[in-house]
Computed example of a mutant assay.
Amino acid sequence: MEKVPMTVRGEKKLREELEVLMKRRPIISKAIGEARELGDLKENAEYHAAREEQGICEAQIRDIEYKLSVAQVIDVTKMKNTGKVIFGVTVNLIDIDTEEEITYRIVGDDEANIKQNRISVNSPIARGLIGKLEGDEVSIVTPGGTKEFEIEQVQYI
């Protein structure tokens, strides 16, 4: 089984989500029991809705438990800052063409959210940055074309 990188924050978020789902389990079971008491199950909308909710909840629990079982939690705050871009770091970049500054945090697939500047380790930009050092200039092929960046700062936060 191949391990999947995940930040400490990502693991915490998944564990919190799992806890919420585990608390919903008995509530859903109770709703199924109450719906059964209403009679004919073939035409019982409450029963079918509760069973569907139970199926969704159980699938989400299995999914999160699997993700946690294959997670390799990486805490970059405990690593020595060498200025090298690795999983979990925050990278300040300067777009060489526009001189615009942008900051990205390199995270796991499930944690990625471009609106919050968290990019997946598997994204073209992250793959182009991994292994590079502060001060390096990189050329990255993205779906929108080739981008040129200078790595201004690498933060292990």
Rank of each mutant, 00 (worst) to 15 (best):
I86Y: 00
R9E: 15
E19M: 04
R25C: 03
K12C: 04
A126M: 03
Q60D: 13
L68T: 03
A45T: 12
M79I: 06
E34Q: 11
K3I: 03
V154F: 02
V76A: 02
I140A: 00
S123D: 09
K67P: 06
V8D: 09
D95L: 02
D110T: 08
L133E: 14
G135V: 01
E53H: 01
C57G: 06
I102P: 05
A35Y: 07
A112H: 00
R105T: 15
R24A: 00
F149G: 04
A35F: 00
Y66G: 04
K67V: 08
A50M: 03
E2Y: 13
D109R: 15
E34F: 11
Q60M: 08
S69P: 01
R24E: 15
I106D: 03
K80M: 04
I96M: 14
I157C: 08
N113C: 05
K30I: 10
A49K: 14
V4D: 07
D63Y: 12
K12S: 06
A59C: 06
G145N: 12
E65H: 07
N117R: 11
I28A: 14
R62K: 13
M1A: 14
I61H: 13
K30Q: 14
K115W: 11
Q72S: 15
I27G: 04
V91S: 01
L18P: 04
V8R: 14
V107D: 09
K84S: 05
A49F: 10
A35L: 02
Y66I: 05
V138Y: 12
E58W: 11
N44R: 02
R127W: 09
Y66D: 08
N117P: 01
K80I: 05
R51T: 12
L41N: 03
V73A: 00
K80P: 10
I102H: 04
G145K: 09
C57R: 06
E43H: 13
V121P: 01
C57E: 07
T142K: 11
L129W: 06
E101K: 04
T82C: 10
E65K: 15
N113K: 13
G108N: 01
M1F: 07
V85H: 02
F87L: 03
S139Y: 01
T7S: 10
V76G: 11
I96W: 08
E2N: 15
H48I: 13
E17A: 09
G144C: 08
S69C: 04
D95E: 11
V85Q: 00
V89N: 03
G128K: 00
T7R: 01
L133K: 11
R15W: 03
E37V: 09
I32A: 06
P26C: 04
D40N: 12
L41D: 01
M6E: 15
I114E: 11
K84T: 14
I64C: 00
L14E: 08
E53S: 08
K115Y: 13
H48C: 05
